[in-house]
Amino acid sequence: MKKIKLPLTKEKVLGLKAGDMVSLTGEIYTARDAAHLRIWESLNKGEEIPFDLENTVIYYLGPSPAREGKVIGSAGPTTSSRMDKYTPALLEKGLKGMIGKGRRSAEVIQGMKEHKAVYFAAVGGAGALLSKRIKSSEVIAYDDLGTEAVRKLYVEDFPAIVVIDCAGNNLYER
């Protein structure tokens, strides 16, 4: 198990290989379908986006609501391929890591190789278990989107597997 402290710099990305089990500690941001669309539209118009993408990790997550006194509800990954259309533009702006599940498009993998980024999978369907590794959660943008709002999370020892590394090696293509 490789312990990684965020932010995810290029040097850290270069040290990761497909198949590595990692645990992530630090700040990450959530964004899924609707948030990706808004970020992508803003980037296309040259407008500000809610957070700096440089050396950032995005978690493809729409959590269930938190109970009173809890940080977050169930919090597992959603299917990454729905974000494929928008991802190359985010990689260009410095996005270094994505946490999700399932396959990525050739365009995304090409972008990851070009800009040195890594794709992690978290275990789909283990949302209760994964929620325990999230220590804080704050909506920072697009509150109107409900579960699809952008949240800043602080995660501690968040478990993931490197599925596609920055050389394009892909654990799903065995």
Binding site: L61, G62, P63, S64, R67, G73, S74, A75, G76, T78, V123, G125, A126, G127, A128, L129, S131, K132, T147
Partner: peptide
């Protein structure tokens, strides 16, 4: 290992009343 995480997830969901999956 992944299957044991899913078993643990089910146990936790029931005990702590966290939905099994965030996609309810």
């Amino acid at each position: 290992n992944i299957l044991s995480q899913l078993q643990e997830n089910l146990q936790l969901a029931k005990e702590e009343m966290i939905p099994i999956c965030q996609d309810t």
